[in-house]
């Protein structure tokens, strides 16, 4: 036995299994969850595209023409296609989420989920039509 006892500061060590960064690929519902979370990246992407268009419009006709040309490149066509699918996924999951996040009552009775989801789709249809109608008059 050594003469000097050896002391260490007590520190508890928990048992923690290392989780891979790819944990969400092991189960389909986790994968859908992470894909749904990733829709935000494409939402931001398109917000930036619209900001870019706004800047082009502020700069003048040549800048706007250049913006239209850039969007015709394969890179942007590919990005916009993927972004469209993700944004669509966001829209559909968001519409179905609303009745889970908010409870509406009419005369003390809870509005059934399908009414809320249905009115989301109705609003979607009306607004999309209005936007298309406005933009296609030019």
């Amino acid at each position: 036995m050594s003469a000097e006892p050896h002391y260490t500061l007590y520190h508890p060590r928990w048992y923690r299994r290392r989780v891979s960064v790819w944990w969400w690929l092991q189960n389909r519902s986790y994968t859908w969850f992470v894909l749904r979370e990733l829709t935000s990246v494409f939402v931001a992407f398109f917000a930036v595209v619209y900001l870019w268009q706004l800047r082009a419009l502020a700069q003048g006709p040549e800048a706007y023409g250049l913006f239209l040309l850039r969007l015709k490149t394969p890179l942007f066509l590919a990005l916009d296609t993927v972004a469209f699918l993700f944004v669509l996924f966001h829209a559909i999951t968001w519409f179905h989420l609303t009745p889970k996040a908010m409870v509406f009552q009419v005369r003390g009775k809870r509005v059934p989920d399908w009414v809320i989801v249905g009115s989301n789709y109705a609003a979607w249809l009306v607004l999309s039509g209005a936007v298309a109608f406005t933009l296609l008059r030019g």
Partner: peptide
């Protein structure tokens, strides 16, 4: 984003 991005994106982007 849910209500308005799909229509803007399909028009402007595609």
């Amino acid at each position: 984003a849910a209500l308005l991005f799909p229509v803007h994106l399909v028009l402007t982007g595609l």
